[in-house]
């Protein structure tokens, strides 16, 4: 766990992602949406509405041309966001704007190539200065993070989460537990995001296996959570859930009234 760098003035007093999860303990709700989708202006609106509607954490996707770990809904939202002109620099300024009124912990999810091109340390520093608490980079291997970037993350108090899947070995789960300073991102099945199916016996036994490992990091379950039932099914096992594709689809369908769409969606969870 890393304390937020006190030298950076933020208008609101924010707690870290880890503190937020640990102080509430259970039933955490982490909502993902892609920055710049459905419109370039929607980031501050959606952040503010999600916070009002009771989200505990927000994950902001940095739209990418080749989002390998994401399913069709998120990929489509990325394409739209890029067409809308979304960039990393714009995203940082949108977050700064949001931070005038919002204190909910924010996590950026993006791909390693985006950090490399921006300059890794510059990226982490500017993300922190904008008011971002954590990063998720699905194609950054844990080994590379530890040897090349952990010191930079620590320097800026930037938290990170690593993914585990049903095919991840116990040894790697322990590694993810050790290195994840925010939470462990439990992929409920070996699948890209956005598939709507009920939890199978196999998934339940996987969730049992992880719980039995007694990990020190809090764990949130993502991939395949889309309504109250699927949310409650995994809340029994872990600290909470991450909802992404279902929210993206809702935003796309209800973009004429974003605040209303966010409220209705959150009521359904």
């Amino acid at each position: 766990m890393h304390a937020v760098n006190k030298s950076i003035p933020h208008t609101l007093n924010m707690s870290s992602i880890r503190q937020t999860i640990e102080s509430k303990g259970s039933n955490i709700l982490n909502i993902y949406f892609t920055a710049g989708h459905p419109t370039l202006e929607s980031v501050p609106v959606i952040i503010s509405e999600l916070e009002k509607a009771g989200a505990d954490l927000i994950e902001l996707g940095m739209p990418y041309s080749d989002p390998l770990a994401d399913g069709p809904a998120i990929q489509r939202s990325s394409e739209i966001a890029l067409r809308n002109g979304q960039t990393i620099a714009i995203l940082f300024s949108q977050v700064k704007e949001s931070r005038k009124t919002s204190s909910i912990p924010l996590i950026l999810m993006g791909y390693y190539n985006q950090l490399i091109q921006y300059g890794e340390e510059k990226f982490v520093k500017e993300a922190h200065d904008a008011g971002i608490q954590g990063l998720i980079i699905p194609d950054l291997p844990m080994e590379v993070y530890e040897s090349r970037y952990k010191d930079i993350f620590d320097k800026y108090g930037m938290e990170i989460s690593f993914l585990i899947t049903p095919m991840t070995s116990d040894e790697r789960i322990r590694q993810a537990d050790r290195l994840s300073s925010a939470f462990i991102y439990v992929v409920s099945k070996s699948s890209v995001t956005g598939k709507q199916e009920d939890l199978s016996e196999e998934q339940l036994s996987y969730l049992d296996r992880i719980r039995a490992m007694d990990l020190k990091s809090p764990a949130l379950v993502g991939f395949g959570i889309f309504d109250r039932n699927s949310r409650q099914a995994v809340n029994r096992f872990f600290n909470g859930v991450i909802v992404g594709s279902a929210f993206i689809r809702a935003l796309e369908a209800g973009q004429d009234d974003l605040p209303g769409t966010v409220r209705v969606f959150m009521e359904g969870l």
């Binding site: 190539n113 950090l115 921006y118």
Partner: peptide, 22 residues
């Protein structure tokens, strides 16, 4: 091309300054 990641390996690739593959 410039250095970056495409399809799981670090190599030379054509991309924008923001790291979007062109």
């Amino acid at each position: 091309g410039t250095k970056g990641i495409i399809h799981g390996c670090r190599t030379l690739l054509m991309q924008t300054k923001d790291g979007q593959i062109t």
